[in-house]
Computed example of a mutant assay.
Amino acid sequence: MKKQISATTRTLVGVITPYAWDENDRVAEVSLSATDDEEYVIENGQRFLELVQKPIRATGIVKSGKKFHRTIQIKKFEMLEHTYSAE
C-alpha cells in the first residue's frame, strides 16, 4: 500500500522556530510556524538556522499526507518587518 503524499506550491507567512537539536543543544532543524496554525518542517532548513524567531513569507513546495509531517522546500522567501497582532 503506497502512502498518499500530496505536493503543492504554496506561499505561507509565519515565524521560523526550532524543530530539532543536536547533541550539543544547538538548533539542528527548523520549522515554519505558519499563520494557518500549522507547523511545516523546512526541508532546506540549514540556511534558515540563523533566522530563528524571525517572521518570513515563504513560497515553496509543501508536502503533506496521513501520518506524514507537513514539510516545505522553500524556493524563495522575504523577511517581514513586524509580526502582526489583531489589537
Score class of each variant (00 low, 15 high):
1 M>F: 12
1 M>Y: 12
1 M>S: 13
1 M>T: 12
2 K>P: 15
2 K>A: 09
3 K>N: 10
3 K>C: 03
7 A>N: 10
8 T>S: 12
8 T>F: 10
9 T>W: 02
9 T>S: 11
10 R>T: 11
11 T>K: 05
12 L>Q: 02
12 L>M: 11
13 V>I: 13
13 V>F: 01
13 V>T: 14
14 G>E: 04
15 V>E: 14
15 V>I: 13
18 P>W: 05
20 A>V: 10
20 A>Q: 14
22 D>I: 03
22 D>C: 06
23 E>A: 12
24 N>H: 09
25 D>M: 08
26 R>M: 08
27 V>H: 02
28 A>K: 05
28 A>H: 06
29 E>G: 01
30 V>D: 03
30 V>C: 03
31 S>C: 13
32 L>I: 02
33 S>M: 09
33 S>Y: 06
34 A>T: 06
35 T>C: 07
35 T>F: 02
36 D>F: 09
36 D>W: 07
38 E>D: 08
39 E>H: 02
40 Y>E: 01
40 Y>C: 00
41 V>Q: 04
42 I>S: 00
42 I>D: 01
44 N>G: 06
44 N>H: 04
44 N>C: 09
45 G>K: 00
48 F>K: 00
49 L>M: 09
49 L>E: 09
52 V>N: 01
53 Q>E: 15
55 P>E: 04
56 I>L: 15
58 A>I: 09
60 G>F: 08
61 I>N: 03
61 I>K: 06
62 V>H: 02
63 K>G: 09
63 K>A: 15
64 S>P: 02
64 S>Q: 14
66 K>P: 07
67 K>M: 14
68 F>D: 11
69 H>Q: 15
74 I>L: 02
75 K>R: 12
75 K>A: 14
76 K>E: 15
76 K>N: 15
77 F>R: 01
77 F>M: 04
78 E>F: 10
79 M>S: 11
79 M>Y: 11
79 M>E: 14
80 L>C: 09
80 L>S: 04
81 E>F: 10
81 E>L: 13
81 E>G: 13
82 H>R: 07
82 H>K: 07
82 H>V: 06
83 T>Q: 14
83 T>P: 06
84 Y>P: 00
87 E>D: 10
87 E>F: 11
87 E>H: 04
